[in-house]
Write a protein that binds this DNA or RNA. Structure first.
Length: 426
RNA sequence: GGGGAGGUGGCCGAGUAGGUCGAAGGCGCACGCCUGCUAAGCGUGUAUACUUAACGGUAUCGAGGGUUCGAAUCCCUCCCUCUCCGCCA
């Protein structure tokens, strides 16, 4: 959510910023109109209530029964006016609130401009292309041949876009989870959380998934809980409606959770393999920062995620996401993509975003600054990393001529010291 | 799922025949004074949001609704916590 003060004071700048994201800035005029209306209604109401409160005190002081009765009946008109007014207020407030929640964040000035994905720019590429003296295969073939995945039974159990990891496949994913958590906790200073993956609706409003993007979410049939599309939701909301002492900033959390997405928007897309499922696992980094440090924290966070790719020895690149492709809540974002050697494409394995106070304002996450004032923290998050896609990249990058997979060295301690995943080792 | 207790400010804790209570008191914290240092002591201050140029105003005592001129205090609904019993991984 944007600051209404900012919308009032820097109206033109806000409109220009929104235009970059492809948002019709007419919404700002509607908001300003509602804001004015809402404020005048509020003032009117406050004044009436002030009078009423005042009169009531007089009644309390009056001991004489007759005079008292006279005073009581005199208040009647005030009450009528107030009743009338208070039926108006919620309508305006709701309209105002709804619009406020539907405006996206504004890109930072340094974000490349461009419609859609055209503004995305490659910041850097790391690592070499793997060389093969045989035609490399896609992961779904390799994994099936190794017997470390079962697509058919996944579909039998749950339908399309589901699969079952088996044997060394399941173990590889588990190894990645443990390893990533340990790198982030031990080397990067993040505290691990294991949060609920079913959350109340308010949490999703806080992170900006609702009210606009509910169609991509699962919820239980009673409607009380929603399944999280990412650990960002419960971890960010860990501090919802709290005031954090400034000395505790920055707060850095890492969390491993399953994630659930309907993928309604992209049905038919990426249907082969494990690239896009309704359920997948992810290790997520979430940070709460003082506004002065948040921009630098984005670089650090991105490096923390990227370091894993380096350690795994995978070719990867960093994209600076352009204004037209920013998510609803982000004002700056880097994507990390790894090279999938079997399908020859870049896979997004991490999305590192700076939200500034956009989420904090929605979720009311504040800190008490040294001047004694409560301010909104800045939030950031990034995957570190998304599991199925990292599995893809490892399988395809490290495939051998005989169809076995060489396990990256950093993972071997988590895989019982094995060097290869072979048909027989599964 | 059934029975009992309870939800007040950063924390503890008053406040039930409805009235000047945003809320006593204590602790904690901040600033100042005092003090050779420390400790103790003294004084002042110490919720949040919206609104106002400012003084100020309004709202909030788990949430929502109701009664009333007026509610932390009465009524209704819901949520949550603790606890006893049942059930269960």
């Amino acid at each position: 959510m944007l600051d209404i003060q900012r919308i009032r004071q820097d109206t033109d700048a806000v409109k220009k910023g929104l235009a970059l994201t492809g948002t019709d800035s007419a919404i700002i005029d509607q908001i300003l109109a509602l804001d004015a209306q809402r404020r005048s209604l509020q003032q009117e109401g406050d004044e009436l209530r002030a009078q009423l409160n005042n009169q009531s005190k007089n009644i309390g002081r009056e001991k004489d029964a007759d005079k008292r009765q006279a005073l009581i009946s005199a208040v009647g008109t005030l009450k009528d006016k107030l009743r009338e007014l208070s039926s108006e207020v919620p309508k305006v407030e709701n309209a105002f609130e709804t619009l406020m929640l539907s405006i996206p964040n504004i890109p930072l000035p340094e974000v490349p401009v461009g419609e859609g994905e055209s503004g995305n720019t490659e910041k850097a590429v790391f690592g070499d292309l793997p060389e093969f003296d045989f035609p490399p295969k896609p992961h779904w073939e390799l994994m099936e041949e190794l017997g470390i995945i079962d697509f058919e039974r996944g579909q039998k159990i749950s339908g399309s876009r589901f699969y079952v990891l088996k044997g060394q496949g399941a173990r590889l994913q588990r190894a990645l989870i443990s390893w990533m958590l340990e790198v982030h906790t031990e080397q990067h200073g993040y505290e691990e959380l294991y949060p609920p993956v079913m959350v109340r609706q308010e949490c999703l409003v806080g992170t900006g998934n609702l009210p606009k993007f509910g169609e991509n979410l699962y919820r239980d049939i009673e409607g009380e809980h929603w399944f999280v599309p990412t650990a960002e939701v419960p971890v960010t909301n860990f501090y919802r409606e709290e005031i954090i002492p400034v000395a505790s900033l920055p707060i850095k959390h890492v969390a491993y959770t399953p994630c659930f997405r309907r993928e309604k928007m992209s049905h038919g897309k990426d249907t082969r393999g494990i690239k896009r499922g309704h359920q997948f696992d992810k290790v997520e980094l979430v940070r709460f920062e003082h506004p002065d440090n948040s921009r630098a924290a984005l670089e650090e966070l991105t490096e923390h995620a990227r370091k894993l790719l380096t350690m795994l020895g995978l070719r990867h690149r960093v994209l600076t996401i352009g204004a037209g492709d920013l998510s609803f809540v982000a004002c700056m974002k880097y994507d990390l993509e790894t090279w999938a050697a079997g399908t020859s494409e870049w896979l997004e394995v991490s999305s590192c975003s700076l939200f500034q106070d956009f989420q904090a304002r929605r979720a009311k996450i504040r800190f008490k600054d040294n001047d004694g004032k409560n301010k909104f923290v800045h939030t950031l998050n990034g995957s570190g990393l998304a599991l199925p896609r990292i599995v893809i990249s490892i399988i395809e990058h490290y495939q051998q001529k005989d169809g076995s997979i060489r396990i990256p060295e950093v993972l071997r301690p988590y895989m019982g010291g094995q060097e290869f995943i072979t048909r027989s080792s599964s």
